[in-house]
Amino acid sequence: MTTRLLRFLTAVSALLIFALPARAQGVEQVDIITPHITDSHEIEIPWPTWPTLHKVIELPRWHPFTLPVIGEVDMSPTKHVIWMLIAAFTVGALLIFAANAQGRQTRAVGHSKGFAGGIEAMVLYIRNEVIIPNVGHHGNGFVPFLLTLFFFILFCNLWGIFPWGSTATGNVSVTATLAIITFFVVEAAGVRAQGLGYLNTIFYWNKDLNIVLRVLLFLILSPIEFIGKLTKPFALTIRLFANMTAGHIVVLALIGMIFAFKSIASGAPFLMAVAINMLELFVAFLQAFIFTLLSSVFIGQIREAHH
């Protein structure tokens, strides 16, 4: 009972403390959601300045250059680039550390334990339960790609939940690139598995039908097949982007309600924000898993396709 009371009091006092600056700033309306979910040329880092607790760092701006077809490309590092790099470094460090520890422990006692064991269990689960069953036989070549996809997306998602962090996977450019990479991997897998038969996955040419129906169906179904190829990466793009963005919008809206209420009733949106944050933690894993699972399914489909 006392611990419950203590928890409640802590929550309320935290609310009050963090509500103070908002009160002090008066009633001017600020859009807190858009900057949070969009990219920018500055990042916030933790800094002991009261009460904002962060410091804004301007990122360098480089001259855009022009590429044929694509047009103007601005390679200046942005907030999401930085967080992607952070995610990539943490993934790399953790996995390499885990791999080393696992190798050492395996040599020492025959199996891995602790953190390395956990990472090994994750890697093995993704490999044995997600990739191999869906990709099919000889799917081992796709394991590194799909595992990297999973861990990279997972850590981008997780860094978005971290305070001061930003969700790179909540940016459509990032998810689109990942989906396009997946698209090329899928199509390359199709070409490699089927050779010339790969053309059948685009052009519908059924030799069991008579020539009139064959041409007719070819004209109708070929565009559909082709669009079907493009909808898969599109769905991947939008699913990840929308999930990550939506979660953050919900959390931020609930936090905004805390300050809009300016009363003890703020406890309700606060608790909901906490709950949604928990949900976001789950969604971070779920979406990384789904992206990997669907990529595996697409690769498996095109490798087995016999039209």
């Binding site: 963090f18 600020v30 807190i32 900057p35 804004v56 001061w164 959390v251 936090i255 606060f270 944050n277």
Partner: peptide, 17 residues
Amino acid sequence: SLSVTSATSLLAQEHAA
């Protein structure tokens, strides 16, 4: 820590709007 987590993201973004 959860309260801080929820609140800081808000605080961090206020200025950039």
